[in-house]
Write a protein that binds this DNA or RNA. Structure first.
Length: 894
RNA sequence: GGGCGAAUAGCUCAGCUGGGAGAGCAUCGGCCUUACAAGCCGAGGGUCACAGGUUCGAGCCCUGUUUCGCCCACCA
């Protein structure tokens, strides 16, 4: 350990401040060397498996990944310690369009395009990129402390997974669940590919609404249609109106003369048309608009494509051919204007679909694409969720899940890019048959021709990730891993890919494995900045996990993420909180340092002393009872995915119970002359510290491992220690009750000291007036402890007495605290405080009395609630009386 | 248009099946009390968005309203 001399003192073996950087590197390396993360394939034990949501191979770790992987690691470490047969499968996704874009940008800087290289060379180039740069995010996950079984790392395009993709494609095709069809899709003219519906983002955009006169074919008048995209009128093949719209009934036989082209198109009647919008007449362009496409189907309208793949007008656009779609729009508007067809132009805000990768305005267009018929697959997924075979956390997602699944459309799986799984379908150029096989065919099975041409398209990236839970375990082979770990236990992911990914894994898993892919789905929140804004580079509010790790340490960062991970939709990350938890980690470190100072010479055998709980002194029984409660709370929180409560419970215990009270209380025993008391304190201190470390290990693996390794006794990794279990012998209500009284008295006396501005190092004399004999006995028994904690020279405990005029005074659990303070009392301030307190007490008492006076309350409320109210009344009356006494007493001093 | 979520201390958030409003940070006062000044001891601070309702009792359940955020959707 490299620490400066000033950080050390001879007394301690540990440096004064926790040096996380060195500790983290040292331990992670060692864990890897010792293969502590590897699944032990111990089939006799319950299996616990998680597959990582594979980050894009192009990715760099952002705070969402950090959260996602912290929560997974938390569960994995927890279950590993519980002795489960635990596996966490890591890996990355080939991320078709994203990765292709990265490499294309690289090429562009060399003034090349992928077409200059050709398909094969280009793909080689992408692989080369992947080998060189693709490991970034994996290394970053390691910095987070992720305990994945790295020997099992997978990539969606590695050999086994590619095999699984082909297998699935072929089977679905043979079952008739994959088909190729002419369909309207979202086309990105820049990426040159079709996009799935959910790959299109709709941004509100300021545009124009053009009102155009469409003359009747017989010249008897015109109808006005409104459109935001006038260039598409070249592809209009009808005008639609609502069937019940009386204004247009006469048009059934007339027809429309399409401006600028003179083509005659029919008027059709369709319920889709909103009568209230504009003039209630809608131009129909089946080849370039999704709704119009549907209308076209219903009325058997021709589909006239007027643009090509690049968004440039084609020959069907007549004299507009060759113009870019937006240039064409201008020209059309100018021409309409000139020829008197333009009625008006309005400013108009509407949602424009944009490519999620490059933000180019998407062009709906018809083309040949491959689809999965999802209905039958979706039904299985819905059934599994309805029957509780898959549970969603938080449960608010059920409704959303069902409504999405009910409205699901066929999934367009073909992409016109090169990087990805090329569709395993060949067309025979001799006989025209389609051949779909897992292995590349040499000859056409229909005619024996060798002239086979494979589809150019690749599959949507999500197609391979939909198979992830079983493809990573070796499917289609029937591996031991599959038998052992499928279905996986839980999927932890962000809710924004519930439909992209989670739902599709359910469909594929149920279809091919005949079993759910995971039993639980935990959807965590999106991380935003502390004002609730999305983090983005342009806003400059990005919190970079690696910077946080360097600045505050991985454990502090992980603890923060855990503390924020309540079951909600958003997390507002505040860097100050990370700093706060860094202090917490340091606090734990120093508590351990203190313990170490007293334990390093201790014989590990003393631990046996802690087993006889009845023989232990109060503070020890109390802390064991508290750690026991904390263990229960942490386990329950982990089992219910209430991660924030895991953090909350450990924080509260470590800082405010273990450090603030217990360590202070046992200091006297640890360094006092009573050997028996000292050994007992050492024993319980060690036991509790061990429990704390194990309990916190899943959240803060590094610091706990480091401290663990320094404790007396021969020790292996804390990672494989059994996770703490509640112990009924530790639960001790009596000890807790007594300690609560003592802590209350101590706090009360400290308050009196502070308010009278008694110097912290000055000693006081105190008297406790305690009518209750039981409490009096307790106070007498632990008087030495109380005196030490409040720096009192003497503590007199009496059954009754009067309070001198010139004394600090308080009432705690029916014990009066009296501290004579000659001339130190701020009489005016005290009176003021008493008056305020009196007001509060009186008001509260009034409420309680009224409540108890209500017959219905006494009759209807449970007995314990009523009893509680009665106790409260008595207590309030007593406190009020004491308050008045004090007021009277102090008034005399004024 | 439909759906979902949020609104609690100055800030960021907990508050699980209804039974005396909590934490961290920030603020104020006092302390280098030998584990930790990255600390310790103490104090102040809230009409639980608003209006109704159910109930003996509501931050929590119901209805409506406002503000903010997100998702879905075929108003060109």
């Amino acid at each position: 350990m490299q620490a400066t001399d000033s950080d050390h003192s001879d007394k301690y073996d540990l440096p004064k401040a926790y040096e996380f950087t060195e500790v983290e590197q040292r331990w992670y390396t060692r864990w890897l060397d010792e293969k502590t993360f590897s699944a032990r394939m111990d089939e006799g034990k319950p299996a616990f498996a998680i597959v990582i949501p594979p980050p894009n191979v192009t990715g760099v770790l952002h705070i969402g990944h950090a959260l996602n992987n912290t929560l997974q690691d938390l569960l994995v470490r927890y279950h590993r310690m519980r002795g489960d047969n635990t596996l966490w499968v890591p890996g990355t996704d080939h991320a078709g369009i994203a990765t292709q874009n990265v490499v294309e940008r690289q090429l562009a800087s060399e003034k090349l395009s992928r077409h200059d290289l050709g398909r094969e060379k280009f793909i080689e180039r992408v692989w080369a990129w992947k080998e060189e740069k693709g490991g970034t995010i994996i290394n970053q996950l390691k910095r987070m402390g992720a305990s994945c079984d790295w020997d099992r790392e997978r990539f969606t395009m590695d050999e086994g997974l590619s095999r699984a993709v082909r297998e699935v494609f072929v089977r679905l095709y043979k079952e008739g669940l994959i088909y190729k069809g002419d369909y309207i899709v979202n086309w990105c003219p820049r990426c040159h590919t079709a996009l799935a519906d959910d790959e299109v983002e709709h941004d509100p955009t300021d545009g124009k609404l053009y009102h155009i006169r469409y003359p009747y074919a017989d010249g008897s008048g015109h109808v006005v249609v409104a459109t935001t995209r006038p260039e598409t009128m070249l592809g209009d093949t009808a005008v639609a109106v609502h069937p019940d719209d009386e204004r247009y009934q006469h048009l059934a036989t007339v027809g429309i003369s399409l401006p600028l082209t003179g083509r005659t198109i029919p008027v059709v009647f369709d319920h889709h048309v909103q009568r209230e919008f504009g003039t209630g007449a809608l131009k129909v362009t089946p080849a370039h608009d999704r709704d119009d496409y549907e209308i076209g189907l219903r009325h058997d309208l021709p589909r006239l494509k007027v643009m090509d793949d690049r968004g440039v007008m084609n020959e069907a656009a007549g004299r507009y051919a060759g113009l870019d779609r937006f240039a064409c729009r201008k020209q059309i508007v100018a021409d309409l204007e000139e020829q008197g067809f333009l009625e008006k132009i309005e400013d108009y805000q509407h949602a424009v679909g944009k490519c999620y990768r490059c933000s180019t305005v998407v062009e709906p267009t018809t083309s040949k694409q491959w689809f999965v018929s999802v209905r039958p697959l979706a039904d299985k997924a819905v059934a599994a969720v309805r029957e509780g075979r898959i549970a969603l956390y938080p449960n608010t997602w059920y409704r959303t899940f069902y409504s999405w699944m009910d409205n699901i459309r066929d999934w367009c799986i073909s992409r016109q890019i090169w990087w990805g799984h090329r569709i395993p379908a060949w067309t025979c150029e001799s006989c025209g048959q389609m051949v779909v096989t897992v292995d590349d065919p040499d000859v056409c099975p229909f005619c024996g021709s060798t002239r086979l041409h494979q589809e150019n398209d690749v599959l949507d990236t999500w197609f391979s990730s939909a198979l992830w839970p079983f493809s990573t375990l070796g499917w289609p082979e029937r591996t031991r891993e599959l038998a052992t770990f499928y279905p996986t236990s839980v999927l932890i992911t962000s809710f924004d890919i519930l439909f992209f990914w989670v739902a599709r894994m359910m469909m594929m898993g149920l279809h091919f494995m005949d079993e759910v892919p995971f039993r639980d789905v935990y959807l965590h929140a999106l991380v935003r900045d502390k004002h609730g804004k999305k983090m983005s580079k342009s806003t400059g509010n990005v919190i970079d996990p690696l910077v946080m790790i360097e600045q505050y340490g991985t454990d502090a960062f992980r603890f923060t993420l855990t503390a924020f991970a309540a079951q909600g939709r958003e997390i507002r990350m505040d860097e100050e909180r990370i700093d706060g938890y860094r202090r917490f980690i340091n606090k734990l470190w120093n508590a351990a340092r203190f313990a170490q100072m007293h334990l390093k010479e201790a014989d590990p055998a003393i631990v046996a002393l802690a087993a006889d709980t009845r023989g232990l002194a109060l503070a020890h029984r109390w802390i064991l009872s508290r750690i026991n409660a904390t263990i229960g709370a942490v386990r329950a929180a982990l089992d219910g995915y209430n991660f924030n409560e895991v953090a909350q419970a450990s924080y509260q215990f470590v800082w405010h119970e273990f450090c603030d009270w217990y360590l202070e209380w046992i200091k006297a025993d640890l360094s006092g002359g009573d050997a028996a008391a000292r050994d007992q304190a050492r024993a319980v201190l060690l036991v509790v510290l061990e429990q704390v470390l194990k309990l916190m290990h899943p959240v803060t693996p590094f610091v706990t491992e480091e401290i663990w390794s320094q404790l007396p006794g021969r020790r292996g990794s804390i990672m494989v220690e059994p996770f703490p279990e509640t112990n009924p012998a530790w639960a001790d209500e009596e000890a807790e009750g007594t300690m609560n009284l003592l802590m209350g008295v101590i706090s009360g006396l400290r308050t009196i000291r502070t308010e009278a501005e008694v110097h912290p190092s000055a000693r006081i004399e105190a008297t406790l007036i305690c009518p209750d004999p039981d409490k009096r006995r307790m106070l007498n028994e632990f008087s030495a402890g109380v005196q030490a904690m409040v720096r009192a020279n003497s503590l007199t405990i009496v059954a009754e007495g009067t309070v001198p005029d010139d004394a600090g005074h308080a009432l705690v659990q029916e014990v009066e605290l009296v501290v004579p303070l000659k001339g130190l009392i701020d009489v005016v301030g005290e009176l003021d405080k008493l008056a305020r307190e009196q007001g509060k007490l009186a008001k509260e008492l009034e409420r309680v009395v009224a409540k108890l006076g209500t017959e219905k309350f006494v009759r209807n409320a449970p007995a314990d609630v009523v009893a509680k109210e009665r106790d409260k009344e008595a207590e309030l009356r007593a406190r009020l009386a004491k308050n008045m006494e004090s007021t009277e007493r102090l008034s005399k001093l004024r």
